[in-house]
Design a protein around this nucleic acid. Structure first.
Lengths: 171, 171
DNA sequence: CGTTAAGTGGCATGACATGCCAAAAGAATC
DNA sequence: GATTCTTTTGGCATGTCATGCCACTTAACG
């Protein structure tokens, strides 16, 4: 049981230590992850050596999970974003688990959360068009067992997309 | 009116041309945006020169919008993610516009969409904890004029977060 | 076939990442 | 408050990489 201490450590003790340099690094890399180390160092007011050391540490600590290119969905032919509310059947214990496993394997689902409120799960699904969504819904989603209800909310306009996380609360 | 042609061009003619190399580049940079050009080139089976040229082209075309570090929300003390359904008042024409402008300026709102369905807008809000959300809700969101209803759905568990966009439909 | 256009590969140079060590800054102890 | 210990920084050296240029290959078209 004591082994759970380490796995819960992150929740118990969220920020090990973040000084102003770390916060600036995170802020800069959220905006442009391809900054060279020397430019990043200049921007945060530190020389390249310690700057790089800090970045590596943040990566090792898991604070930085990875780096990803942000693509224009329309440009690559993924014009339709749908937010799907999913309810699973209350009875079967394993409904939620099988649903989670299924969802994780679907590339069209780019985010998935267990949520409070009317629905159980909230999925963000990305497909080329309505026809593709129809196919996804009828041939993929609806075939997952244990689903009691699905509600599709189509994104008509995107105001903001995966904006940078606010870092103002750190100091 | 003809000037609208260019602004609509992307929707009319989504993918200008994507061969296998481009798709592999986008795929690789979605997974690891900090890949060096030589490693990227090796991975996609091309020499560094044309590989870099393709990446720059994809950036200029706007296919690649940017690069960003993915941070661990818990690690930086942002333990609470809330999906907020917002309805604006039907009467005032400008309700939606003022709401959009307000939302764009809020760093806690990391994504915002105009959606079909029961709500008008779907926001993703990130805050340290419940107390911070209470403050955000009462002192920020509820003070935006023209809002008729707000429903907060708390993320209890995150199965997948901003996963890579599926590129399988390109050829 | 010859011509042209587009894309590729290799090379050279300048910039950069990265590991090491001495110096500086800060914390703790007496 | 001086000393010691710890931590972090800055500079340097080396090997790797980005980047622009040019010759070569390939494919399409007349």
């Amino acid at each position: 049981m004591s082994c759970h201490l380490t796995s819960n450590f992150k929740q118990i003790m969220p920020e090990h230590s973040f000084d102003g340099f770390d916060r600036k690094i995170l802020d800069a890399l959220q905006t442009d992850a391809r900054l060279s180390n020397v430019e990043l160092a200049e921007r945060i007011g530190l020389s390249p050596s310690p700057c790089l050391r800090r970045v590596k540490l943040l990566e090792e600590r898991g604070v930085i999970e990875g780096y990803q290119a942000r693509l224009d969905r329309d440009a690559i032919g993924l014009g339709l974003t749908v937010f799907v509310d999913v309810k699973v059947e209350r009875h079967s214990e394993s409904s939620a688990e099988t649903f989670k496993a299924a969802v994780l394997s679907l590339p069209e689902v780019i985010s998935a959360h267990l949520v409070s409120g009317a629905a159980d799960f909230l999925l963000q699904v990305v497909v080329p068009d309505l026809k593709a969504y129809e196919r996804f819904l009828t041939q993929v989603l609806l075939k997952i067992p244990g689903i009691s209800d699905i509600r599709s909310n189509f994104a008509i306009q995107t105001l903001k997309q995966q904006g940078a996380l606010p870092l103002g609360h750190l100091r």
